[in-house]
Write a protein that binds this DNA or RNA. Structure first.
Lengths: 248, 248
DNA sequence: CGTGTTTTTGCGTTTTATTGCAATAATATA
DNA sequence: TATATTATTGCAATAAAACGCAAAAACACG
């Protein structure tokens, strides 16, 4: 088996199970421990996984809300700052939840005057610090995982709304498959948010590019802006630029 | 299980419940006490938690504990603990906001099974840490001062609800005048909350007793329980006891 | 083809990390 | 204070990693 094939195999295992054990890989790939260690080291050098004693862990696994140490915080700050340029006085904005959106709020200029609808209590609390922003929290069932409201009630309320701009994070974006998600409820929610806004900006770190999950939220054409921590003309973004998404 | 995974697990527990017991972790992770102690030590060295005799505490919790920004915190903890006795499995509870209510949530037993409607995003986030509690956040305009949702939309939603118990704080209570408030919006909100619940418990520190403000929410007879930090038979509470309010 | 170079891989050895145990010390709790 | 619980320390067994080396394979190039 070729080295590249081993690497691919290991990354598939990582993406599937969020972890691999050195000992397991030795058996599965029938090579020596040294070889596996070297493989893991190389993949870690490329930033594709976390090497730990006994094996390796997925990088994106550490995306927990409570976690005081936000994953890839630097990138998220860059993204957040770019996103603030989209906001102008008088705008009606709709936002989702997530650490990137929360960071976006923290980066907003103090005196901005706008109306914000949000499904995230944490975002609402943060927005409340801005005296010229009117905050409307969209209520409903509260998701323990994603820390946003969801469900039929939320969707009903969104149906009555037409915002100028929707800001949302995503767990995956792909130039051909568009926005995709794993959970049906979140999928429905995002569809409703898209429908409730004239334009949509997707905020995501480059790690989430070129990934497609089970459920499709919308084709790539429905996205007005894609904001990552990369430079506008970075080669990784070519596929999206070709689909006429505005890259910020 | 890899060491790093244990560390992640411990940090999740810490962020969820603000504390962990060494003994619990031994059982949950099926490793020796020594290993857990070493894990806690390492995490403490990284500054991610406070190691204490018997386990570890969340850093943020510890710092907010020291934080004297919460006025009369000791009293509020006493009140909060008393209030938890009113909650039984299967109950539908409606809560307001405020530091006392938030403290009440933190004092709830971990495995309680209930449905909570709330107008406070902070309460919702705190409730989300309990896996057996269903949380519904009532949405609407978000008040920068009182950090709760309010306004017509909230009242409409409350009108459709009938909870077993409503828990609310108050800025004033008086044996003759009942519950009173200063702001019309809050007044309307509280009226709606009362109407949406079979019983109502008012949580307030003793210094808010015997005060009447501009706007009346309800007569004293509409209150089922009055919870203060004082003893049940304290003389300050005589006036309320005479009106057949249950004093806890 | 042949020869020198680089890459890849596995083996033996040394070094380090992890874990549990036992004895002792410190701390909480009644 | 007495008792039970929890911490600390040193130690030993085991597992994993790192290192140097050498065989084998792949590659480069005249």
């Amino acid at each position: 088996m070729l080295k590249k094939e081993r690497h691919d195999f290991i990354m598939r295992q990582i993406n599937l199970h969020n972890r691999v054990l050195t000992s397991d890989l030795v058996q599965l790939l029938t090579v020596s421990e040294d070889t596996i260690r070297r493989d893991l080291q190389e993949l870690a050098d490329e930033g594709l996984l976390f090497k730990v004693h006994g094996g390796a862990l997925s990088k994106s696994y550490h995306s927990s809300f409570d976690d005081s140490t936000v994953y890839a915080r630097d990138s998220k700050i860059v993204i957040a700052k770019k996103a603030t340029n989209l906001i102008t006085d008088g705008m009606v904005v709709l936002t989702g939840g997530g650490t990137t959106i929360l960071e976006f709020v923290k980066q907003l200029p103090k005196n901005i005057e706008a109306t914000f609808f949000t499904i995230s209590p944490l975002v609402a609390v943060e927005l409340a610090k801005y005296s010229n922003i009117e905050v409307i929290l969209i209520g409903g069932l509260f998701s323990k995982n994603s820390q946003v409201t969801y469900g039929g009630q939320v969707i009903t309320q969104l149906a009555e709304l037409k915002a100028d701009l929707c800001l949302m994070g995503t767990s995956a974006i792909h130039p051909e498959e568009g926005l995709t998600d794993t959970y049906w409820e979140i999928n429905q929610l995002k569809k409703a948010m898209l429908a409730a806004s004239k334009k949509t900006a997707v905020l995501c770190i480059s790690e989430k590019l070129d990934i497609a999950l089970r459920l499709r939220v919308c084709p790539i054409g429905s996205i007005s802006y894609l904001i990552t921590e990369l430079d506008q003309d970075h080669e990784s973004l070519t596929g999206y630029r070709d689909k006429e998404v505005n890259i910020l």
